[in-house]
């Protein structure tokens, strides 16, 4: 799964044709870390239809805030660089909900 940072976010997400899902996570966010294996699995499963990437907000705080993300876990769908849909919070970001988010947008 592609790791985003401040140097590649613009090119890989905002300037990209097609659909991108970004997993905003953090080093101290236990729910985020618990979700990661499921996200890796979904990235494998849907990798040919949607680009799934992750962004460590602990190392990229300003970038996350620029995307108006101030809470974890958060998953955002971008289509042709435009943000389309998002889910946030440990109760809402279940593996099933993330998969549904992907399916709705491919």
């Amino acid at each position: 799964m592609l790791e985003l940072n401040k140097d590649n976010f613009e090119a890989e997400v905002l300037q990209t044709e097609g659909t991108v899902l970004v997993d905003f996570w953090g080093s101290k966010c236990e729910p985020c870390k618990a979700l990661m294996p499921d996200v890796e699995r979904l990235a494998e499963q849907y990798g040919d239809k949607i680009k799934i990437c992750k962004l460590n907000t602990t190392d990229n705080r300003r970038l996350a805030i620029s995307q108006k993300v101030l809470g974890l876990p958060t998953f955002i769908i971008y289509k042709n660089g435009e943000r389309i849909k998002e889910i946030s919070g440990a109760e809402n970001c279940t593996p099933d909900a993330i998969e549904a988010l992907i399916k709705e947008n491919i």
Binding site: E30, G71, G89, A90
Partner: peptide, 11 residues
């Protein structure tokens, strides 16, 4: 997720 949080260690 935009400033409202229920988890301090997360956010």
């Amino acid at each position: 997720g935009k400033g409202v949080s229920y988890c301090a260690t997360c956010d």
